[in-house]
Simulated assay, not measured.
Amino acid sequence: MARSQAQDVIRCQYCEEEPALFQCVPCGDELCPRCKKFHLKSKVPSGHNVVPISEKLHPTNVVEMCESHPSKPYDACCEDCQVPVCILSIQEIHNTHRIGKMLDMYEKQKAEAMKELSEMKTQKRAHVIERIQDVEDGESQVKNSHKHRSWEMKRQAKDFTDHINAMLHEYLGESASNAKSQLEELSLYKAALEEYKQNLEHVIEKLEILTESRPPANFILYRKQNPELVKQLKSPDRLVTADPTFKPGQLNKEQNKTQFGHMTKFSLCEW
């Protein structure tokens, strides 16, 4: 880059006299208007892209160096491979391919990208926002549905519990009444046995006295007067208790589920 010592003005790299008003993007040369004409006549596969220096910072004018040949700038594009290329890349790899101007490919791909960008900003963005809203509505629906189902199942469970508690209360009452009746019968039976035991002890005592201390005549007379004394001591009939039983019913899980209720599962579907 040639500069004037006095005014620090960029000078043409060719004549080094006139101010450089242009720059060749592929070459990087800074040119005056007169040398620009000569520069444009030199042959390169992609041609020259000479722009005013004031425009050289535009994205299309920024010089980028080749990844395969860092010392060479990209100055064209391979239309077959759809990649930027430098002069050496054209000679070594893309020599049989169609070579075009980088600006043409840039403008074409930029137009396609702008169309895609517009579609993403409008249709796709609106669509995904709508789908997110659908998901949020679905989340609310699931939560509300679960809350309502839980309330219904708890109410059903309470009805079952109340019914079971009522049956339990009824059965406990029957069992208590039955036990009370049996205890009363056993009490009467015990009283009869006590009375029989008392009479038995009295006869035993009487007979013991007669057999031990009374004269034989008195004993014989007593036996004559009470021939049926022992036979009259009649024992109450034997009372056999039968314990009440409780046989639990069989709990069928599937049947109980059917009696309790049926619930469908929440499902998701793609559309």
Rank of each mutant, 00 (worst) to 15 (best):
Q23E: 06
V25T: 13
V25S: 13
P26T: 11
P26N: 10
C27H: 00
G28Y: 02
D29R: 15
E30A: 06
E30I: 04
P33H: 02
R34M: 11
C35I: 10
K37Y: 06
F38C: 06
H39G: 04
L40W: 01
K41I: 02
K41L: 06
S42E: 06
K43W: 13
P45F: 12
S46T: 05
G47A: 03
G47N: 00
H48C: 07
H48P: 14
H48S: 09
H48N: 10
N49E: 02
P52G: 09
S54M: 08
S54H: 09
E55L: 00
K56A: 11
K56P: 04
L57A: 14
L57M: 12
L57R: 14
P59M: 04
T60R: 11
T60S: 01
V62T: 02
C66L: 04
S68Y: 13
S68K: 14
S68E: 15
S71V: 01
K72M: 02
P73N: 06
D75G: 11
A76P: 07
A76D: 02
C78E: 00
D80T: 05
D80E: 00
Q82F: 03
V83E: 15
P84H: 01
V85Y: 05
I87S: 15
I90K: 07
E92N: 12
I93D: 14
H94G: 08
N95R: 12
N95G: 07
N95E: 07
T96A: 04
T96L: 15
H97T: 03
R98N: 12
I99R: 08
I99S: 07
G100C: 01
M102T: 08
M102V: 02
L103F: 01
L103G: 05
D104H: 04
Y106L: 12
K108A: 08
K108C: 07
K110G: 08
K110F: 09
A113M: 04
A113C: 00
A113D: 01
M114Y: 03
E116C: 13
L117H: 13
S118V: 09
E119V: 10
E119D: 13
M120S: 15
K121T: 00
K121F: 03
K124H: 11
K124M: 08
R125V: 00
A126I: 07
A126M: 09
A126S: 12
H127T: 13
